[in-house]
């Protein structure tokens, strides 16, 4: 029951993230930022596709009576989290450096923060996939 709740929670979180990205895309499109709009839609689709595949697999495992977490999955989360945190520092530095150099232009601080957080989330996802396959 607890594991089923975890699967549902992950599903809701993925749905909310995808909805947020789609809303962001609509707002960007109305403001005339087409690149940002298309990028958001692509990320939303990727999130949804991965979430559906992941949830389908996890739901099957939970139904068979397996736990959603064990020592290996927790180990992977710890490794992926620490590596993503370390790389994120360079990512944030890159955003700060390139925006002060004029390579990247942000309307306001919230846009820069959004890009930073999105980059961190993507980095965590990539690190998780890397350690899960290693």
């Amino acid at each position: 029951m607890k594991d089923k709740l975890k699967v549902y929670s992950i599903g809701i979180a993925a749905f909310l993230l995808a909805s947020g990205l789609i809303l962001f895309s609509i707002v960007s499109f109305k403001n005339g930022t087409f690149v940002g709009s298309i990028l958001s839609i692509i990320i939303a689709i990727v999130v949804l596709v991965f979430a559906i595949a992941f949830l389908k697999r996890e739901y099957k495992e939970v139904k068979k009576g397996f736990s959603i977490h064990d020592e290996r999955s927790e180990d992977i989360m710890k490794k992926a989290g620490s590596k993503a945190y370390l790389i994120s520092l360079y990512w944030i530095l890159f955003i700060g450096w390139s925006s002060s150099n004029g390579w990247l232009y942000f309307e306001d601080i919230s846009e820069a923060t959004g890009i930073g957080v999105l980059g961190m989330a993507i980095l965590f996802g990539l690190c998780w996939v890397y350690y899960n396959r290693k």
Partner: peptide, 13 residues
């Protein structure tokens, strides 16, 4: 799968 269930881990482990 049997072994995973007996020791309380996921099959992938």
């Amino acid at each position: 799968e049997d072994l995973a269930k007996k020791v309380g881990v996921r099959r992938e482990t």
